[in-house]
Amino acid sequence: MTRLLARFAALLLLGAALPALAGALTPLQPGDYARIKSARSGKPFIVTLWGLDCPYCKGNLAMLGAAAKANRQLDLVVIATDTPDDAAALAPLLRQAGLGERRTWVFGDAAPERLRFEIDRQWHGEMPRTYLFDADHQATAVSGSLAAEDFHLWLRRNGLEAPRAVRP
C-alpha cells in the first residue's frame, strides 16, 4: 500500500514537473501499438519514433511537426523511446517541434525491447525511425531523417498534399 501510494505520488510529481505542457504525454504499454494501428484502419498515417539521446531526431521531428500543423489531415503518431520520467526533458523538444499541443507517447515499459518488438521486429532501436502507413497499412520504414522527397511522395500517394501545407 505504501509502495502503491509512493508510486502514485511519483506520477503526480511527474505531472507537476511540466505545468507548461499543454498536450499529453501518454505512456505506451504493451498492446497499445496494435490499438493505435487498428484505430486508424483504412487510413493513412505516420508513426515517428524519437528520443532525447538522438541528435538527428530534432530535425526530423520539426519537419513532421510543421507538416502536421499545416495540414490537419496529416495523422502523425509521435512516440518517444525514453521513459515517463523524462517528461520534463521531452516537453521543450516537443514544443520546439510544434507538437506541444498534441497527445504524444513515451515508452512506458521497463523493457524497451518488448515495445520495439511489437512495433517492428526488424527495427533494432536506431533513431529516428519513421513508418509511412498507406491507407491499406502497407508501411515504408525509414531509419534516419525522412527525406523530404520520400515524404512528399507518400503525401501525394495518399492524397494528403494540401497546397502550401508542407514545406519541410
Binding site: R7, Q29, A110
Partner: peptide, 8 residues
Amino acid sequence: SKGAKAPR
C-alpha cells in the same frame, strides 16, 4: 509485465 509504467 511487472515493470510496466516503471521508469527504465
